[in-house]
Design a protein around this nucleic acid. Structure first.
Lengths: 169, 169
DNA sequence: ACCTGAACACCGTTCAAGT
DNA sequence: ACCTGAACACCGTTCAAGT
């Protein structure tokens, strides 16, 4: 998964076996193309998270399933979260793409907040939201740092440190 | 501070009031230019961290000074750590630039490990290194997420959550 | 409705040519 | 030693032209 800058009409056209001007017929601007990609990426993430809710027995399993998705990206050709990449490109992003990046963050924090709420029914919603945001940010950061080292073990090491502090509990 | 992709020979030349081919005289390739920038960026960070060691009275002040640098980037036109951006661009980075990104990470974790060692003289070096890496990753992630929201308050909120868990202690 | 070719202003890069 | 102009193959984008 590449970011906004690495995305190319001509490369994409070549892969599909068509001219770049044809791609512009379906996605007039790069903003259209990139936000469509980011939107689909978020939809897939939401589907995955909903699946976890259905199949996981307890909180620990949910967290394990959630973090596994980020780990998988690294293990699979040292990739990282599309919206993490795009967040780093924020200054170069058209408004429509920025909105999609924020939708991904919102979907993730909403899900985390929900599973935290199930575990801590008495804790205030504000506090759970702050914790959800902290979990998301910490995992994105771990992925970012692990990726630049090209080493999944770094990701595991950082997440172990988070877990030991009780970030996920 | 922009990343590798946003860096342009022609833009830089225009700022200096010279032709882009003149910039190539000093920095033959974009890899040369970007790694020189990243190298200077790391040197400034190291100087800043050394300054903190000299001026800060205790561990909390050191952490406060360290996190303040990341916060300042956000407050100043929603910027973020150059090497954080470049880590997200890792796939597109020439080897020389990748090496500079890793040098930045190494300088930061070494510094964090050192101040943690001063505070916890009996704890094993491995454990301190893991903690240093976790702190660095968590802060980079907080900056990434806060930036996409264009809101420094998000950074503060996330760092408060980290502090409450004892990440920095 | 969908695709193409050609053009435009951008980009990094090279290089012969200027001082 | 340093700068320039012109060229190359790239890029997103537009648009008249094809089917």
């Amino acid at each position: 998964m590449h970011g906004y800058n690495a995305l190319s009409f001509r490369d994409l056209a070549k892969e599909v076996g068509v001219k770049s001007s044809s791609v512009h017929y379906h996605f007039p601007t790069k903003a259209d193309l990139a936000s469509a990609l980011a939107s689909r990426y978020t939809a897939e993430a939401v589907a995955y998270m909903d699946d976890l809710i259905r199949t996981c027995q307890d909180h620990d399993a949910l967290i394990a399933g959630y973090t596994a998705a980020f780990r998988r990206a690294l293990a699979d050709q040292n990739r990282m979260c599309l919206c993490g990449i795009m967040a780093a490109e924020f200054h170069e992003l058209p408004e429509a793409v920025r909105a999609e990046v924020n939708r991904f963050t919102a979907a993730n924090t909403r899900w985390l907040e929900q599973i935290l709420a199930n575990r801590h029914p008495t804790v205030a919603r504000d506090a759970l939201h702050a914790r959800a945001l902290a979990i998301f940010a910490a995992i994105e950061g771990a992925q970012l740092v692990a990726r630049s080292r090209g080493d999944v073990a770094t990701f595991d090491q950082i997440l172990s440190a988070y877990a030991a502090l009780g970030l996920f509990s």
